[in-house]
Nucleic acid binder design. Structure first.
Lengths: 260, 260
DNA sequence: ATGCGCACAATCCTATAGGATAATGTCGCG
DNA sequence: CGCGACATTATCCTATAGGATTGTGCGCAT
């Protein structure tokens, strides 16, 4: 996901189309409710229809697109305030636990269980420093905790934030938990656009608190720090969310159904 | 998913292929590790390649299949014991909360938020009985809690169990939470095959305890009942899981890689 | 003027054939 | 016995054509 590991994996055209479309959705180039034409996308990206279809099918099962069987794909609408709260409630169930588990385990989990089993404990491969966490992992975590400079793009902050949370999830040692957390991310990503630039600093402080607790192997502290971070983050997003809603109360109904 | 609501939605060939393949995976007709050839499936199902591709792409992003870019699709292997425990740990975070929320709300959530908003409170549409839960919902919940007769197929029990948990999740009133729970289901389904026939009765008792607490609007009791059910269910599955593992210790490596 | 029915256009879905590319298995040589 | 080059196979991608369905616009009757 990040540049930490080179990804020499093959990229088919379907993968290309998938990342391209996902990126467009994430940066709101494709607004919620927009209609996606298969033919149009194929011509626009200079691909054939087949890889486009594959990419759209994947995005649909991820929940970013809706498919109406003989009418085409549309971008899912933004979450309502209630759904947004529900999503944060779920995060509060999962992510603090992930932080705790990350702090509990000194061993790194490289998301390859099979790889771990083949490494006898005490091997010289993974250098574990005094803090219990391998130096490389600790550095990666600290790097992910940092937010970009204030002058940078909102999108950069958005991605950095997602990266930190995914890093913690990966360090939890539970591939299942990490996957469950990552699944929530896609929808959330759209709402990260409603962040206030002032809160970038606060976010970094809270991220660092979580990272420190994990590196210092303090499970309860890590759990609590993550919980607090999520609570504050929810409040920040909610405030900006409401503000944006009142600013432009016209969600721009592309063409209201001629429903009388 | 079930027959409770008529689904007059259009079914394309891609949908057909998707459900067919998913069904085959669920009933282990397609064993973990098996290779799926697009050409082969197209000929076998008498479809074209295009709908098969779409179905495979969806199944892959659901986590049931793995895709190696120029080598084809394979069925994901069964979860290891550790991953299995991790999955139950996640269920224990989410499902008791869902049960609690279902008990808290007297109002039914028909998984259509837009539909709810259009119904003024106190309307004659939803008849709420003394228990606070609409009679129809209460009956559906009780029906879902029941397990099939002992003589029936193992697959039937498996599906009934999944149906109950999904019903509770839907009643939670949080579409996000329901979706998150349902996402876990796919992987778990494969392991429900390891259930002992003796435990069907126990499962039904525990399901009814959860259902009663929800209908009686006792949030804490519902939460606790669900938690206890999951704990016991986990123990039951684990026991059968280990037994199966020792019975046939040969996972039948189709063809070991000529790795030296 | 309003509501209904019909035809048109646009789009999606399906089907089939063929070429390009990478992985696999086989053979021969050192 | 191990290693490298080759041919085969399979997969992915492209391209095009035709059938089916939805939504839109026009005309007509009430």
């Amino acid at each position: 996901m990040t540049a930490t590991s080179a990804t020499p994996e093959k990229r088919t055209l379907a993968d290309e189309a998938y990342t391209e479309l996902k990126s467009r959705i994430m940066r709101s180039e494709l607004a919620p409710g927009a209609k996606l034409s298969i033919d149009g996308l194929a011509k626009q990206l200079a691909f054939s229809q087949t890889p486009i279809r594959e990419a759209l099918a994947r995005l649909e099962s991820e929940g970013l697109l809706a498919r109406r069987p003989l009418s085409g794909y549309t971008v899912e609408p933004l979450l309502s305030a209630a759904e947004f709260d529900d999503l944060f409630e779920i995060r509060m169930m999962l992510e603090p636990r992930a932080a705790r588990r990350a702090a509990e385990r000194g061993t790194p989990e490289i998301r390859e269980p099979a790889l771990l089993r083949s490494i006898p404990p005490g091997d010289g491969l993974a250098q574990v420093d005094a803090s219990g966490l391998p130096a490389a992992e600790a550095n990666a975590l600290l790097a992910a905790a940092r937010t970009p400079d204030a002058g940078s793009d909102k999108l950069e902050f958005t991605e950095a934030d997602a990266r930190f949370h995914n890093t913690v999830a990966a360090l939890s040692g539970s591939a299942q938990l990490a996957k469950a957390i990552r699944r929530l991310d896609a929808h959330l990503h759209l709402h990260r656009a409603y962040i206030e630039p002032d809160s970038i600093g606060e976010t970094e402080v809270e991220h660092l608190a979580v990272a420190d607790a994990i590196i210092g192997q303090q499970p309860l502290a890590a759990e609590e720090a993550m919980r607090r971070h999520l609570e504050r983050s929810r409040i920040r997003h909610r405030a900006a969310f409401e503000a944006a809603r009142t600013t432009e109360p016209t969600p721009k109904p592309k063409r209201a159904k001629a429903n009388r």
